[in-house]
Design a protein around this nucleic acid. Structure first.
Lengths: 217, 217
DNA sequence: CCAAATACTGTAAATTTATACAGTGTAAAT
DNA sequence: ATTTACACTGTATAAATTTACAGTATTTGG
């Protein structure tokens, strides 16, 4: 048997065409479409697809249209390398990536996850600053010590959550500001959700802002 | 005309089913599949899809199988609300979301973006800690003041990048550690890429670790 | 040299899928 | 009161798609 998962030039062309179909139309191609594109017979297309299956590049569900799935989902995420393993973990074969992330499967959260941008410095001691994008899970129960997004008198805020009986304390992570103390059932108070993650663009602008704060403190 | 892009309960069910098909099988459903799933006629399915098109939820390409595309790519992102607008920006109609993020289009980076997990506390003053996932762009030129991932004698590290002529200083964001000073052309030195972003899961474990560091400092 | 893998053609049939046109009944809007 | 939107059924047809089976010619590994 030949080196089992090595693609021939032709097979790589077919594989590439399948990937292109996904990125251009969001759909796998039909066998006919492949055949037309390459100017060969439908059966040739099917054989190629079955070969790609055998070599572990795609999945194929028979008896349905467009039953091709990509197994190495490049378009759905970014390769992630574990940190440290000596040598050159980077830049080598793409295959060495441990996992692929996309936001949803990086965070443990319900389907209703949403994001809010942070404005202000009230959570700076929790390493959250202006421009950061917080991921908020509205289905999760707030617990002591978690960071939550709450509406207080119509105003949204991000704070530490602390509850003692019916008294809730919303504590900012910045000594400049005072905690908000409020009754759990207060009409003007509502926890929107629990912050389960954060993403930050580390471009020049963001870095300069970060340094500015560091110098000031 | 009724409030044009408001979905009825039934329509939302159909829309949900289309989304599910994408996330479970990586494929849009055929009209028949929709019909079977809901126990109605193919034509009912088509009408529903056309309604979703009219209301701006999906795109439909006629005459091909599975010609449904999602327009507001829920499975590829998370709705993001701008922070502040008084009232209840959250919890209301999904439509109010300003944008949808996914990692790739949140960050300005080349296609070869990859991720590495952070281990250790050497970048703690730059608000980067153990467990954070850094996004690294290997195509970007390192410039003074940027955070980079470099290989020094085979060991990968995350540091501030400072260059003066041929001398490169890799500065840790933690007073406990000393900068690494090295020649730009040194064989044992290589910049792997520039850190362009970061994502952090803010679960219980991560928060506890953050608090531990805060107390210690 | 021979077997296996590669890369196809060709015809035909079976299925799946989309479309077309004609209806039905209910509820909400004007 | 009437129109419109909604949510369907039913039958029929056409087109797209997959599958099945039978070949051909070339290259590659042992």
């Amino acid at each position: 048997m030949t080196r089992s998962n090595q693609l021939t030039t032709r097979q790589a062309e077919i594989y590439r065409a399948i990937c292109d179909s996904f990125s251009e139309r969001g759909l796998p191609p039909t066998l006919q479409e492949l055949a037309t594109k390459f100017g060969f017979n439908v059966n040739a297309a099917k054989e190629h697809v079955l070969t790609l299956v055998k070599k572990g590049y795609v999945k194929y569900t028979p008896h349905i249209s467009r039953g091709i799935e990509l197994l190495q989902k490049k378009p759905a995420g970014i390769p992630v390398y574990g940190f440290v393993p000596a040598g050159h973990p980077f830049m080598s074969q793409e295959n060495l990536a441990e996992t692929f992330v996309n936001v949803e499967n990086y965070l443990t959260a319900s389907r209703d996850l949403f994001g809010v941008y942070v404005k202000g410095d009230s959570m700076i001691e929790a390493e959250i600053g202006t421009g950061d994008l917080l991921f908020v899970d509205p289905k999760q129960e707030p617990k002591n010590g978690r960071i939550v997004v709450a509406l207080v008198e119509g105003e949204p805020t991000v704070k530490w959550f602390e509850q003692d009986g019916n008294t809730v304390r919303l504590v900012p992570a910045n000594k400049k500001y005072k905690p908000i103390v409020i009754d759990r059932h207060d009409e003007n108070f509502k926890v929107v959700g629990v912050v389960v993650g954060m993403i930050r663009a580390l471009d020049k602008k963001r870095i300069d802002e970060m340094l500015k704060y560091r110098k000031a403190s």
